[in-house]
């Protein structure tokens, strides 16, 4: 990560970046409602599984899109094939669109599709911000846990210090996954990680049918 601006990475990875994340629970609301997540231990288990699956995939696609921003369309298709749930595709594209909207006011952006999957958008934005694939991967991996962790505080009323303690303990794993992902940034799209989390898919589909929900996904 030498030569890049750490401050720029912090701006991009800041939870307060107006890129729509606050309205998404990363699948947590569905599992809270299903009764599977009630306490800090279950949140930890949820985040570990999410980081190893969608976190790894997001990090890899963010890194690949950062290394090859002009390949956004092929990478976007690659995420389509890894996201069987229509509700999750919609949520990912809504967040990608929001991120691109924010980024256009922050950096000079290349032309891309409007509703890119969020990890691809993140990679393209990171490149425009002058960041490298490793930084893009860290931002993506971190984003998959921090958004759901914040939703856990709001949905379960958990102690925010305890939840942040959890995020701190997950940080080394986040770094490891991001490094794995970044090392594969030049792989063909079919060879990029495809780790799936079936309950995130099913939960997102069930969640999308609820009449009342607090989070968009």
């Amino acid at each position: 990560m030498s030569g890049m601006s750490l401050a720029t990475l912090l701006v991009l990875a800041d939870g307060r970046l107006p890129s729509g994340g606050h309205a998404h629970s990363g699948g947590l609301e569905a599992q809270v409602s299903a009764g599977r997540v009630r306490d800090l231990d279950a949140v930890a288990d949820f985040l570990r599984g999410k980081l190893a699956t969608s976190g790894l995939v997001s990090a890899a696609f963010a890194a690949a899109a950062c290394a090859h921003p002009s390949e956004w369309a092929a990478l976007d298709q690659g995420l389509d094939s890894r996201t069987p749930s229509p509700a999750l595709r919609k949520a990912s594209r809504a967040q990608g669109r929001a991120l691109l909207r924010a980024a256009r006011a922050m950096w000079t952006m290349p032309l891309t599709g409007r509703d890119l999957h969020q990890p691809v958008a993140l990679g393209v934005v990171a490149a425009a911000a002058g960041l490298g694939p490793a930084a893009a991967a860290v931002a993506a991996a971190h984003g998959t846990t921090s958004g759901a962790a914040s939703a856990a505080v709001r949905l379960l009323g958990l102690d925010p210090y305890a939840v942040h303690g959890l995020l701190a303990r997950l940080a080394p794993e986040c770094d490891r996954i991001a490094a794995d992902a970044a090392a594969r940034a030049d792989d063909p799209v079919d060879d990029l990680p495809a780790a799936g989390a079936p309950l995130l898919d099913i939960g997102a589909e069930l969640h999308a049918t609820w009449e009342v929900r607090l989070f968009a996904s």
Binding site: D45, L51, T53, R82
Partner: peptide, 22 residues
Amino acid sequence: TLYRHDLAVGPAAPGWSGPAIL
């Protein structure tokens, strides 16, 4: 590519039996 999925279960897969995966 229509469908690309890699499911891992067992002790080597972090969180596999947790509320995100199974």
